[in-house]
Simulated scan of single mutants.
Amino acid sequence: MQDRAPRAALIDGKAIAADITREVAAEAATLREQGWAPRLVSVSVGDTPAADLYVRNQQKHAENAGVDFEARSYPAETSLEQLVGILQGLNADPRVNGIIIQRPLPDHIPVKALQKAVHPLKDVEGMHPASIGNIVYNDLALGPCTAVAAVEILKTLPLKVEGLDVTVIGHSEIVGKPIAFLMMGLGATVTVCHHMTRSVAMHSRASDAVFVAVGKAGLVTGDMIKPGAAVIDIGINRVDGKTVGDVDFDSVAQVAGWLTPVPGGVGPVTVATLMKNAVLATRMQMAHYRDAFAKTDF
């Protein structure tokens, strides 16, 4: 009888996140001693249970990381102009080091307009066009959290990234495309697949590592994976009351060498990366203010 026990090693995202959080807490303590206690402000619009859950999760992780956290909620009928004004006020407040825009937003509020309104030095989510664009130049100061987290997970594995054949399934502006650029910056050879790709399986089966970020449960199956490959599942879907990824877990686990579970994989590392961005942003702002207001001799 053939042994059907999973061969893939499950990647413990919670353990990776805990390591990052310990480093962040030490950095936050140092900044606090220097008079720059890292502080995040969360902006929610309307009454949305999903956003409330994210806020509570972020607040808990912020406390663990030694980062101050303030949640602000505004009525659903708040206009775009009012919200942009609120963000401009936060941009100008030196006591605020990072701004998080909670989603979903009301239909009359385009998320990209708010992301553009956040100052790049306070863009801890890495969603500002400048933050996304910097990745092309391999400048990872404040990268998009989910993309950075997924790549950080891969870097913990005993794989030589230089020359690694990688397939990214999904080409969104804030996950798929940044992952591709991040991996190219590390020396990997990257293929990006999307809804117009003729044969996704042809590319994924030839890859040493596969990132999946589409939002379609069970999209990637075991016959699409090269034996021993690393599979980073970034998808989050609700199926029959359960949270699942984009990977058909049972079949892929029989083939892959490493696999992130959903939940417990990329998610915890994403939140830890958000906190890491908070302390990075704080240090960048500290340097900016010192340079801007440094005493000069005339």
Rank of each mutant, 00 (worst) to 15 (best):
E77Q: 10
L80A: 04
E81G: 07
E81N: 03
E81R: 04
Q82W: 14
I86W: 06
L87I: 15
Q88W: 09
G89W: 13
G89I: 11
G89R: 14
L90Y: 04
L90N: 01
N91I: 05
P94G: 06
R95N: 11
N97Y: 08
I100V: 10
I101K: 05
R103H: 13
P104Q: 04
L105R: 07
L105K: 06
P106V: 05
I109K: 10
I109D: 10
K112W: 08
L114G: 08
L114A: 13
Q115N: 12
K116S: 10
A117N: 06
V118E: 03
H119L: 11
H119K: 12
P120L: 11
L121G: 05
L121H: 04
K122P: 07
E125R: 04
E125V: 07
M127T: 11
M127Y: 09
M127L: 14
P129E: 13
I132S: 00
I132R: 01
I132T: 03
G133F: 01
I135G: 04
A141L: 14
A141P: 06
A147S: 08
V148E: 09
A150D: 05
A150S: 09
E152N: 09
E152I: 03
L154C: 06
L157V: 00
L157D: 05
P158H: 08
V161A: 13
E162A: 12
E162V: 07
L164P: 15
D165Q: 14
V168D: 02
E173F: 12
E173K: 10
E173W: 03
E173D: 15
V175A: 00
L182I: 03
L182S: 01
G185D: 11
L186M: 15
G187C: 02
V192W: 00
C193R: 03
H195S: 15
M196D: 14
R198W: 01
R198I: 13
